[in-house]
């Protein structure tokens, strides 16, 4: 079980690195496009569209990792002031709600990807890319996020975590 947890953490870390690489690539791609427009009077077709797709990938590849770091925005107004026992119940419950919502998106997202593939839907923009390419990372990211929510529920249930404060930015 421990080993499985470590393996999962490794996956999240690797995906976080990919998300970071995507972030930097978005910047470099756009700068290159502008550079080429200045120098050669011609940019690169499709950069903006690919940037849009990269936004989705960055978000969903990084989502579970961000939860692992307790860095998703939460309103801890009530959570911070209730007795420890109630706080634990609230944390476990909210984690389970999160897990359920994410698994639902995983399920419906997978359906959406399959449906999009079977309908051969493409994005009608500069580059005609199958819409499924954009969509597929949503169920994937939500599956990982859902699993991380379950782990979080267990962490809070056991009291492994100091029960408040998300990391400050």
């Amino acid at each position: 079980m421990k080993a499985l947890g470590r393996a999962f953490d490794t996956i999240l870390n690797v995906l976080a690195v990919i998300a970071g690489v995507i972030l930097v690539s978005m910047m470099l791609m756009t700068v290159t496009k502008v550079g080429m427009r200045v120098v050669m009077n011609h940019g690169i077709r499709g950069v903006d569209q690919i940037s849009g797709t990269m936004m989705v990938y960055m978000t969903f590849l990084g989502a579970a990792w961000v939860l692992r770091k307790e860095a998703h925005v939460t309103v801890d107004l009530i959570v911070a002031v209730v007795p420890d026992k109630v706080r634990r119940i609230m944390h476990v419950t909210s984690s389970l709600i999160g897990a359920a919502a994410c698994f639902a998106v995983t399920w419906f997202g997978t359906n959406a990807v399959l449906l999009s593939l079977s309908r051969q839907v493409v994005v009608a923009a500069e580059l005609e890319i199958p819409r499924a390419i954009n969509l597929v990372v949503i169920p994937l990211g939500c599956l990982l996020l859902g699993i991380e929510f379950l782990r979080r529920a267990i962490r809070f249930y056991r009291g492994d975590v100091p029960a408040t404060k998300p990391s400050e930015i």
Binding site: H72, V73, T74, V75, I78, M90, S94, I97, G98
Partner: peptide, 9 residues
């Protein structure tokens, strides 16, 4: 939100 569910969720 007040339950502590992350805002996005």
């Amino acid at each position: 939100m007040f339950m502590g569910v992350p805002v996005a969720i």
